[in-house]
Amino acid sequence: MKEPKSSFSIKDWNEDDRPREKLLTQGKAGLTDAELVAILIGSGNREESAVALSQRIMASANNNLDTLGKFSVKELMQFKGIGEAKAISIIAALELGRRRKESRPAQLKKITSSQSVFHIMQPILGDLPHEEFWVIYVNNSNKVLRKLQLSKGGITGTLVDVRLAFKSALEIGAVAILLVHNHPSGTLRPSAADKNLTDKIKTAGLSLDVKVLDHIIITEDAYFSFADEGLM
Rank of each mutant, 00 (worst) to 15 (best):
G44S: 01
F224L: 10
P184N: 15
A106R: 15
L145N: 08
A85S: 12
L178A: 09
R146K: 13
K147Q: 07
F79T: 11
R146F: 07
A92M: 08
H119F: 11
L213K: 12
N64R: 09
A227E: 04
T187F: 06
G154I: 04
M58I: 11
S72L: 05
G173L: 05
L208R: 14
R163I: 11
R100G: 03
N139P: 15
M77R: 14
Q122A: 12
P184T: 15
K80H: 14
G173A: 05
L159A: 10
H130A: 04
G205K: 04
H181F: 03
N196S: 15
V180L: 00
K110V: 12
A29H: 09
I155H: 15
A38S: 13
I124V: 13
S191V: 08
K5G: 00
R18W: 03
A87S: 09
H181V: 02
L53K: 05
R104A: 13
K80Y: 11
T219D: 06
V37H: 02
K167Q: 14
N196F: 13
L148G: 05
Q26S: 10
K86I: 06
S141V: 08
P190Y: 04
P129M: 15
T156P: 00
N182L: 03
Q78R: 13
G153E: 03
A61R: 09
W134C: 01
M121V: 02
E84G: 05
T158I: 01
L76P: 04
S141N: 13
E75Y: 02
A29T: 12
S191E: 11
S103N: 14
H215K: 01
I217H: 03
L40E: 08
V180Y: 00
I217M: 11
T198H: 12
F226A: 11
S225F: 10
L24W: 09
K11I: 15
L179M: 03
D17Y: 09
S72Y: 00
F133K: 01
L145Q: 12
A165N: 03
Q122W: 04
K167T: 14
D199I: 08
L208T: 03
A87N: 02
G230N: 06
L76Q: 05
A85I: 14
D161M: 03
I39L: 13
I120L: 15
E48P: 00
T203V: 09
Q26R: 13
W134R: 00
A52Y: 01
R104D: 10
A192E: 12
G30K: 10
N64V: 14
V162K: 04
S113R: 10
L94Y: 01
D214Q: 12
F226T: 02
Q122K: 14
L108A: 15
S72N: 02
S114H: 05
L65E: 07
E229N: 15
K86T: 04
R20I: 15
V51N: 05
G153M: 04
R56K: 15
N140W: 03
L128P: 00
A227F: 08
G83L: 08
T203W: 06
